[in-house]
Design a binder for these strands. Structure first.
Lengths: 109, 109
DNA sequence: CGTATAGTGTACTATGTAGTACACAGTACA
DNA sequence: TGTACTGTGTACTACATAGTACACTATACG
């Protein structure tokens, strides 16, 4: 599923029982032009900037990290954490690459 | 230490006992214009693209993840791993943010 | 002395990113 | 029936990214 179609789906789900989730009204609340959001939802243009994706996530009550990933990006706060200890995190992440979710979750606990 | 000064230092260390590490010759081997590498080393322009940083790292025998971090970037293979399971890695990385190196290293073992 | 090599200044460029602005056609409804 | 709102097509734009191309001066050295 692409970024655009995911957003469109999410928005239309909200729209079903709340008319304030029209494309135009959402566009207005996240402060972009309706024509632009329309193109984004139809994948006619590349996904928006990180800041806009985050506003969109809040607006649609979706997970920002997930949406950013679909937009081909990584939250800049995560990037910053990694860049502070690049070799450490690089090693860690590459070793976790093939580990199943539950094994990774256990690490945190 | 900036990206440029780090590179210049590393290159001049190599140059000290190997004349093939002149700016011009390194530039030629990593396939950029000497004038451009000169500007990069003096931080007169932004750090190069990921691909160029990686070639530079190989050439100077420096760690690519470290150089990319200094360039404000994250290796695209790491980004890809994270984007495959964004929520999982986002949670993990944010929790590791303040943990000391040795504690993080222990996780991998 | 000249020629090879060194680093750098200046000007320019192609492509990507992240949108805006405005006009238009369709639908709803009071 | 008009007016209010819906989504979308087209054209344009400002800024960033990632460099190239060429000329210039300084230095070394055989």
């Amino acid at each position: 599923m692409t970024f655009g179609s995911f957003i469109r789906n999410a928005r239309e789900r909200r729209l079903a029982d709340d008319s304030r989730f029209s494309l135009r009204q959402v566009a207005h609340r996240i402060d972009v032009e309706p024509a632009y959001l329309s193109k984004v939802e139809r994948d006619e243009v590349a996904p928006p900037s990180e800041a806009t994706v985050v506003r969109l996530a809040r607006e649609l009550d979706e997970d920002a990290d997930l949406l950013l990933a679909m937009a081909g990006k990584i939250s800049s706060d995560l990037a910053k954490i990694i860049r502070k200890r690049p070799r450490l995190f690089a090693q860690l992440i590459r070793e976790l690459k093939t580990m199943p979710d539950h094994a990774i979750l256990r690490l945190v606990r």
